[in-house]
């Protein structure tokens, strides 16, 4: 089985869907001849032709509007928004149109589109190339939001997203594109090669949306994470030696509530980890759900370890980033080891 980086796995998913379904097409800024600024669409235009993978004007709202029209027609467009920070001009299209079209037309028109976009920091991208906007999509009913953490998951989830009949926001943790970054910027990041989840099959396979993965079983506490933070959490757990269970949500809508509840009821403790700023972040929703469903099992307050409530700060990137040290402190607090 070939070993792939996350970029190669995403590229493989797109290539396999282009080959599989003539209704799939890709467009976005710089995705055509050039193959995308992160190379996720590299070679697809050459292999599948101009009409299957082409450049779009720098107009994110227009890109999503066009994709919705294509989706309503019956195609399965996979538009790329170059950075998740640039998705905001298209927010009205996603909220007022993609998420509402099925509802308001009683299913006469739908928007089966998959919006791919790299998110997250850790690349010295400053405030316009680093944000994690997942919460603003999770809040919008009618949208699904998927965030992979490994090459294997990235391919299986992207294929499932493209085949899904509802609009999907597919956020790609750009810090994981080339290796399982664990939140330690002072250390060399290993590449994906050799990582078990970098073994990616050729051909189509699906990971159902809404199914979390238990990355590490444990008894002492539950850590809920997705995207880049899955690797940060694993590294932190290994460093501190606390026997925590690590759940990779993989998609936040639909959310695998059963996996969350089962784990927290078992461990009695919960730490939520995300890179987005804390106030109003998705961690608040997770915390509320855990409180509502696991209150009598909880031995300690639910903790959130998140980015600070500031814009993404360029020079202070690693002071902002919720790295292993902060998670370890939180794990020690909830387990009473502090």
């Amino acid at each position: 089985m070939p070993s792939m980086t996350m970029i190669q796995a995403l590229n493989s998913a797109l290539a396999d869907k282009l080959a599989d379904d003539a209704d799939v097409l890709i467009f976005g800024e710089d995705v055509g001849y050039f193959g995308g600024v992160f190379r996720v669409t590299a070679g697809l235009q050459e292999r599948f032709g101009l009409q299957r993978c082409f450049d779009a004007p720098i107009a994110e709202s227009g890109i999503i509007a066009t994709a919705i029209g294509m989706g309503a027609y019956g195609l399965r467009p996979v538009p790329e928004i170059q950075f998740a920070d640039y998705i905001l001009p298209a927010y009205d299209q996603l909220v007022s149109e993609a998420a509402r079209l099925r509802y308001r037309s009683s299913g006469e028109f739908t928007a089966p589109i998959t919006v791919r976009s790299p998110y997250g920091g850790g690349i010295f991208g400053g405030q316009t190339h680093s944000q994690s906007p997942e919460a603003i999509f999770a809040h919008i009913t009618g949208l699904k939001t998927v965030i992979p953490s490994t090459p294997y998951d990235a391919k299986g989830l992207l294929i499932a997203a493209i085949e899904d009949d509802d609009p999907v926001i597919f956020l790609e943790p750009k810090r994981l594109y080339n290796g399982p970054f664990d939140g330690r910027p002072d250390q060399q990041v290993p590449g994906w090669h050799g990582h078990p989840a970098a073994e990616v099959p050729e051909g189509l396979y699906r990971i159902p949306l809404g199914k979390a993965a238990t990355v590490r079983e444990g008894e002492a506490a539950t850590v809920l994470a997705y995207g880049t933070m899955v690797h940060v959490a694993l590294s932190a757990i290994e460093e501190c030696g606390i026997d925590a269970e690590l759940i990779d949500l993989r998609s936040i809508v639909p959310l695998d509530i059963d996996a969350i509840v089962a784990s927290v009821q078992k461990t009695g403790r919960c730490v939520i980890l995300h890179e987005a700023s804390r106030f109003g972040g998705f961690g608040g929703e997770l915390s509320a759900l855990v409180q509502e469903r696991c209150f009598y099992h909880l031995e300690a307050p639910v903790e959130r370890v998140c980015g600070w409530d500031t814009p993404y700060p360029h020079a202070f990137e690693w002071d902002y980033f919720p790295g292993p040290a902060r998670l370890i402190k939180a794990l020690r607090r909830v387990t009473g080891e502090a």
Partner: peptide
């Protein structure tokens, strides 16, 4: 499908036509 905000579907018409 109509909606109360008119401009947001102008691009859908273009996407439909492109499809």
């Amino acid at each position: 499908s109509l909606s109360g905000n008119l401009g947001s579907r102008f691009g859908h018409a273009v996407g439909w036509a492109m499809a």
